[in-house]
Nucleic acid binder design. Structure first.
Length: 880
RNA sequence: GCGGGCGUGGCGGAAUUGGCAGACGCGCCAGACUUAGGAUCUGGUAGGGAAACCUGUGGGGGUUCGAGUCCCUUCGCCCGCACCA
């Protein structure tokens, strides 16, 4: 027998697999012209890494999960696509380059090599011929091409608006990249600035992105919920209010500037609107107060609001501030004159930045009304409210105050609401529809849907990114770079360590206008790195295509991704953007599917002492140290075994050592099963062993044949049961229990080997056949998890010249997994009192009799009220 | 506040549809083999009790022959969103 030595076998087998192209994805030309029958496919994908140094344990976990799935389906007869690449544009490369006085490209490509080497050392089964590197011109040129297609579709917009500016990173950020007022990457505070920037109109797809979440049955509920929240669809109405004078008179022909539209989800509460609010940033706010005695107060509120940082603003309940503008609006439902206030809790970029305030039905308005002593008109009441008897059925307004502790936001009966009095009011109530209908008929409002989702700001004032293919011409204006001129190559002779950017690189930005040929200036902003990751999974299907981003037939064959694996931190960002890209491409007719990722697994973090591993905290465990000591296979198995994949995993080196022991043990068992263990045979019978368990057997000289046959029968059953369980578990991503089941098979194998000596087993045909079968099953079951271990055993102990990874998976016969005798628990009033052995197919009556006999003593003189027999499980006898 | 998830031994975690709670592993205890053991092998290991037994899945209540699982209620923790009108 050969010792298990991962340090020796792993690098050797990795080289062998590479030289035999074991992991080249099946790419038969015939597959695409319909002349050949295709094998079913599986596209297994892990989120590609950003190359910042070597891979860490989080990557190891991510890629191990993907690798097991990919290898498993390959053995199950699928064509498997399992690629890897690098999300290689981005700011860390620039920062690192400045720090080390180098170039981002140098740093990036060096890290890619490091990570690639580590991935190979982990034995991941990637098809390296399909590697996509986002900063290679052959990739990013197609990102530019997609941008141009979107432009043609009217999905690209350059507009001036308030944007998030990260001072630290020196660039703007998309809404999705601001987390609690901080930059997603550097965590520094984000400012608001008014700038002209490039946007992708993801809001055009808001409904589609929301509705199609229902199609994603293979996604975690949590992620779908997060996306739904982010898209934030609200149904309601737009209602037009008109400026009026002190007497409540409106101009005969109100101009556009006299009208302010609000969005509300509760038009049913319009009768309760007792004041009107504008955001501090509301355009035209100062025009309303210019020169008046109220201007000072309004300006103070606006100035104070500006001082509040986004971080502060994001933090919970803040006291509300406001000021009266001295102006009034007319409530369109009842002609009421309501005062206009500026209030700092109104956000300018949601709805219209103007709000009808209904203090009786909205807690924020309620608080504001209390603070500034504004009327709180009750218009929707629960029937058990003390006010209800007084106001029930009252149409005209008789009360403008309440002594409530809080607003009433639930469903109730409408009062003081004119013709709507007596109707049920509340979210999505009959009153909502009635009032919207009437407003629309009067030309004062209409149904409306509002989204929280904003357009995607994609321009970045940074060097290390994909150049936006646009040109400014004094004559022709803004013009797209013609497709034939792609790629717009990112120049490498920019020295960012000297503070240079593309805007300083004349050889880059000086160009001629593609329309008129005159002197023009190239756009010097680059695209958000998330544009690169929004379609890389499509490029993998056709990575070397020089005429298109990918061949549609190839993408349509492989996509959608059957299993996508990555961190929860991308729940909104990357996963939303990718869905958007795919929907755009579908509408362009380039792909024929709606969603990129059919099944999503968000893996948990790897933690050390309860804390996230991070370089800054200095509490990392380097994968290379671990595979150097225990081998990649043990590391892979450990990371799968210690927790379900979606839960956080606590790093535990003892656990790794335990798994390493397990691999060693099965290694020896496989050799022993093949009769090649020699003096390492696990058999303890007939040897010098003196343990109690085998004493009798030793004295008798050997274990009785009947006992061995029984153990062998159990092993045969267990073999089928475990194969079935492992199939189930892997297909449901329960890798921890799959491994536990394999351990059970190994334990049963150990019991068997202990009893039956190699000589005895080889003398019996049935037993030698069983030995060979069990050895093969153990190796195959562990092949996806511990690929080197399995390959070495397959080729040495089992003597094959082929690779175990191209073999068919172990067969599974549910019939053979069934025992002919089963143990049933016998319960008295739900508590287990005895166990009985019965034939697996025993009749209910037989079972009942046997059960009653087993607990006859305990039943004694009590009366049996009822007997419940659950075949193959238990018998419950109810006694009194 | 809204939404999602979770709570099981000393620890990580098992328990598809309600059916023997604690699979599997770590750790620990005991033993075997050893010059030695952080190697290997064997046995034990939810708690209480000498035992028969009793108690146990955050707490309380309910449905059921039977509840970790379903329902109500309550406590605690984690995550996401958040003056979103």
């Amino acid at each position: 027998m050969k010792e298990y030595n991962p340090r020796e076998i792993e690098p050797r087998l990795q080289k062998l697999w590479e030289s035999t192209n074991l992991y080249t994805a099946a790419e038969d030309a015939a597959a695409h012209d319909g002349t050949a029958t295709l094998k079913p496919k599986k596209y297994v994908l892990e989120m590609f890494p950003y190359p910042s140094g070597d891979i860490h344990m989080g990557h190891v976990r991510n890629y191990t999960i993907g690798d097991v799935i990919a290898r498993y389906y390959k053995m199950r007869g699928f064509d498997v696509l399992h690629p890897m690449g690098w999300d290689a544009f981005g700011l860390p490369a620039e920062n690192a380059a400045i720090k080390s006085n180098s170039h981002p490209a140098k740093w990036t490509y060096a890290n890619i090599e490091t990570q690639k080497a580590s991935c190979k050392r982990m034995g991941f089964s990637y098809d390296w011929n399909r590697t996509v590197v986002a900063c290679d011109a052959e990739y990013y040129r197609w990102g530019q091409w997609i941008f141009l297609q979107m432009w043609k579709q009217g999905l690209v917009e350059r507009k001036n608006s308030p944007v998030n500016w990260c001072v630290e990173c020196g660039t703007v950020l998309a809404n999705e990249q601001v987390i609690n007022g901080e930059c997603w990457r550097c965590k520094s505070e984000v400012e608001k600035r008014e700038l002209e920037q490039w946007y992708l109109k993801i809001t055009d797809y808001a409904d589609d992105l929301l509705n199609d979440l229902d199609k994603l049955v293979g996604w975690p509920e949590r992620v779908k919920q997060m996306q739904a929240n982010w898209i934030g669809r609200s149904e309601g109405a737009e209602v037009d209010f008109v400026l009026c004078d002190e007497n409540g008179e409106v101009p005969e022909k109100p101009s556009a500037s006299d009208t302010i539209t609000v969005f509300t989800t509760r038009p049913d509460t319009l009768f309760g609107c007792s004041f009107f609010l504008l955001a501090p940033e509301y355009p035209g706010l100062f025009d309303l107060v210019a020169g008046s005695e109220y201007e000072q107060g309004v300006r103070e509120v606006v100035a104070a609001a500006e001082k509040v940082s986004a971080v502060e603003r994001a933090q919970g309940d803040r006291e509300k501030h406001g000021a009266f503008t001295g102006r009034y609006m007319q409530n369109p439902i009842n002609g009421d004159k309501v005062p206009v206030w500026v209030a700092d809790y109104i956000v300018s970029d949601y709805g219209t930045g103007a709000v009808m305030a209904v203090p009786c039905g909205d807690q924020r308005d309620f608080e504001f009304a209390r603070k500034y002593n504004l009327p709180i008109v009750p218009i929707i009441l629960p029937e058990d409210d003390p006010l209800y008897p007084e106001l029930a059925g009252v149409k005209e307004r008789v009360r403008t105050t309440v002594d409530w502790a809080a607003s009433f936001e639930a469903e109730g009966i409408m009062v003081q609401s004119g013709k709507y009095t007596g109707m049920v009011g509340g979210k999505h109530s009959e009153a909502v529809d009635a009032i919207i209908g009437d407003l629309e008929a009067a030309g004062k409002g209409k149904p409306a849907i509002n989204f929280r989702l904003r357009d995607w700001l994609i321009s970045r004032q940074r060097y290390w990114g994909n150049p936006i293919p646009a040109i400014y011409c004094d004559t022709c204006g803004l013009v797209p770079v013609p497709e034939a001129d792609l790629p717009v190559v990112l120049p490498l002779d920019v020295d960012i360590t000297k503070g240079e950017t593309l805007a300083q690189c004349a050889s880059f930005y000086e160009c001629s206008c593609p329309v008129c040929g005159g002197k023009a200036r190239r756009e010097t902003d680059t695209m958000d790195t998330f544009t690169c990751s929004s379609w890389y999974f499509l490029r993998y299907t056709d990575p070397h295509n020089e005429n298109a981003p990918f061949d549609s037939a190839k993408a349509n064959r492989w996509l959608p991704v059957d299993q996508y694996i990555g961190g929860i931190e991308h729940a909104i960002l990357h996963l939303l953007y990718s869905r958007f890209f795919v929907k755009v491409m579908r509408d362009l007719g380039i792909v024929d599917f709606d969603e990129p990722f059919e099944n999503l697994l968000t893996q948990g973090m790897v933690k050390l002492n309860g804390e996230t591993m991070s370089k800054s905290k200095g509490n990392t465990v380097a994968p290379e140290d671990m595979f150097a000591e225990y081998g990649a296979d043990a590391l892979r198995a450990f990371i799968l075994f210690m927790a379900p994949p979606d839960k956080d995993l606590e790093w535990e080196e003892d656990g790794l050592a335990g798994i390493s022991r397990f691999l060693n043990r099965v290694w020896r068992q496989v050799w022993d099963l093949k009769g090649l263990a020699g003096q390492d045979s696990l058999c303890t019978v007939g040897t010098t062993d003196t343990t109690n368990a085998t004493d009798t057997a030793r004295e008798a000289g050997s274990v009785e044949a009947a006992v061995i046959e029984k153990q062998a029968a159990m092993l045969r059953r267990e073999r089928h049961r475990v194969v079935g369980k492992v199939i189930d578990d892997i297909e449901r991503n329960n890798f921890n229990t799959a491994l536990a089941a394999i351990m059970e098979l190994s334990n049963t194998t150990g019991d068997y080997l202990r009893m039956a000596s190699p000589e005895l087993r080889s003398a019996h045909k049935d037993l030698s056949a069983l030995d060979a079968e069990i050895a093969e099953v153990l190796v195959k079951l562990l092949a996806p998890i511990a690929p080197h271990w399995a390959e070495e055993l397959w080729q040495t102990a089992l003597g094959h010249s082929s690779s175990v990874h191209t073999q068919a998976w172990a067969d599974f016969d549910p019939e053979q997994a069934k025992a002919d005798e089963v143990e049933l628990a016998v319960q008295l009033n739900g508590k287990v009192k005895a166990k009985i052995m019965v034939a697996a197919d025993a009749a209910e009556e037989t079972i009942r009799e046997q059960a009653l006999a087993a607990v006859a003593l305990q039943i004694h003189d009590k009366t049996v009220v009822k007997t419940v027999v659950i075949p193959r499980r238990l018998v419950n006898i109810v006694i009194k």
